[in-house]
Nucleic acid binder design. Sequence first.
DNA 1: CCTATATATAGACAGCTGTCAATGGGAAGG
DNA 2: CCTTCCCATTGACAGCTGTCTATATATAGG
Lengths: 118, 118
Amino acid sequence: MATKTKLAVATNDECCPTVLASPLSEAQSLDLARDFALLADPTRLRLLSLLASAPAGEVCVCELVEPLARSQPTVSHHVKLLAEAGLVVGEKRGRWVWYRIVPERVAELRRALSTDIR
Amino acid sequence: MATKTKLAVATNDECCPTVLASPLSEAQSLDLARDFALLADPTRLRLLSLLASAPAGEVCVCELVEPLARSQPTVSHHVKLLAEAGLVVGEKRGRWVWYRIVPERVAELRRALSTDIR
DNA sequence: CCTATATATAGACAGCTGTCAATGGGAAGG
DNA sequence: CCTTCCCATTGACAGCTGTCTATATATAGG
């Protein structure tokens, strides 16, 4: 071993963990990893960027299929994953379901990469 | 289709893409997804948090094995991935290799989740 | 009702990845 | 040298996931 000082293992299990502030607990790292995994796919990133830059801030699935160049079931699959994680919300209006970003959830992930203590 | 207005497909290929500012190109989304994939693993997140909260900002691999509860080859594998992406750098001193976080790279990812125009 | 459209679900499958045991390579210290 | 310690590499394998086709569900309009 290089030194005899032991690295901290236990951590504070706060509400909004950040990666760089203090050692993450296993539970916190699992939750954060699950969230970041949603951003680890190019189709979902492009989906989010399309939602964000849509005129009214919302887009129906049928308008995502062509720009994403994926099949309709695949697009439906991705929005479902994002919705389950709370990153987007869908509202059914008639035959269409309009999805929009939940900015607070995105900000939460952004904050997890902050160097601030809290 | 809900409307006849077409969503933008082509985008500006700038240096530092953000998810929420404008539609991502396929290349940008691929790069960003690759980066976020590194954060999509609990072991790597805990590894980064251990580096960040280390007294001197650096930790050798041997001091990561126990707190991460992973085998030494597994830890070595993860730091290699992080290093290849530029998120950490390692410096060999004697028998040990000391790794530290590259804050600019983390900030780059953080910025990708910003709502700012630039 | 019957059809057309929009979305969701189910099932299948290939590719990726996180993990480990085994091994290799290098540096320090007798 | 020879051993010991640290780290990297290799190979193998199970589990996950992104994708598609096929199908189901639901809503609106004649």
